[in-house]
Design a protein around this nucleic acid. Structure first.
Lengths: 212, 212
DNA sequence: TCCTGTTCCATACAGACTGTATGTTAGAAG
DNA sequence: CTTCTAACATACAGTCTGTATGGAACAGGA
């Protein structure tokens, strides 16, 4: 996709400029998709914001949905990076048993999902624009793996009781996603955050092995 | 909207025929939206299936999204009716404490969501086609009320510990919705249903007051 | 009964948008 | 210097949505 490049020529200005236009397109599309949604955003709007023409868009991407896929991939990637960053920071700063660590992890996960771009593009538009299969493949690749790893480790360590990881991962992700949307939409974000966190906390206690 | 009808003229053939075309449009749109999705379905396809012209469509509905809103409303209504039916049937057949009754209620709720039309139209396309506010208003009107009532009663009876009902309702609905989508998408529906049910069961135990 | 107004729907049209086909330029390769 | 190709820009065709126009059928009052 990014040019066959048979000989490696030390990152020419040419190739650099090409990557620039592509990035500009993705960035512009990301902003507009997040603001107005997929269908309400015309390709003309995107190329205008990126200061190129429609020819550039259709040279780099198969069609409009393909551009959206790139945008959503970037959003998911950003979220994943932010999560691992938080995760590592909390792992070395905080201390405690694995169970409380996991619970706090979910709470910060909830906070991380409080991002307009992510919510609109990945959670709302994504499933409708790309099919279910394509959307799931993207999320599987970027986001679910982290959550699944964390949960697997929690089971191995005995923090939570053994359960099928597949549905557990999806359902917890959906739970947190909905909670983040609820918070974002609420008039009073403060109390909404507190209440949603409380409900999440209660639901998670059901997973704990302490009451097995 | 359905004619001012100043004098009540005993449901003339005229009005009946009018209602017929409207129903035909909604039915045709429902089938096509569920099969191909919203954007992939042209208004020409809909009126062809309903055996009318586009003029009829734009006479009864403001625009394509308005037709979708009617379709989604019907889907939600069907789901709500099915739920209360199951609910009453189970309430008089089964017997047991309120807590197990509630748990079984959620399981049958999960089974009821296993419906292609409902999943595609209400859960996937809905949030993207209508905005968040319009979608939420529809679901609030048709579906959430039942769940919220049930949960409020459960709290009053002491089955589950007191919690903010707003986020609790949304999050549980999202949980079951995602579980139903997971089951529908799985290769082996049988085991997927069992596993998702198990995870749901575990999460719900966190709400129970018995461990408070 | 005749006239009038309104509902209901069909048809024709204008605008917008997507995707493709064609042309052009600048850099890389030999 | 020549040639080839990636990287665009431009022009065009097809499709779709929404609207405006027109007509037919029915209801109601004089």
């Amino acid at each position: 996709m990014t040019a066959p490049r048979s000989r490696r020529s030390s990152r020419s200005r040419r190739a650099e400029h090409t990557a620039d236009t592509r990035r500009a397109l993705v960035r512009a599309a990301r902003t507009l998709f997040a603001e107005r949604g997929y269908t309400a955003t015309g390709t003309e709007d995107i190329v205008a914001a990126a200061q190129v023409t429609r020819g550039a868009l259709y040279h780099h991407f198969k069609d409009k949905a393909d551009l959206f896929r790139a945008v959503m991939g970037e959003c998911a990637q950003d979220m994943a990076e932010r999560l691992v960053e938080q995760e590592t920071a909390r792992a070395e700063s905080e201390s405690g048993d694995a169970w409380t660590l996991l619970r706090h992890g979910f709470q910060s996960f909830l906070d991380a999902c409080n991002d307009p771009d992510f919510q609109r593009i990945v959670l709302v538009e994504g499933p409708a624009v790309l099919g279910h299969s394509a959307w799931d493949a993207l999320v599987e690749e970027h986001g679910y793996v982290l959550l699944a790893e964390e949960l697997t480790r929690a089971i191995d360590e005995g923090s939570i009781s053994p359960m099928p990881i597949g549905p557990l991962t999806r359902m917890l992700a959906a739970l947190i996603s909905e909670a983040s949307l609820y918070i974002a939409r609420a008039e009073d974000h403060e109390t909404a955050r507190k209440e949603a966190g409380e409900v999440l906390e209660r639901l998670l206690t059901g997973l704990s092995r302490t009451d097995a």
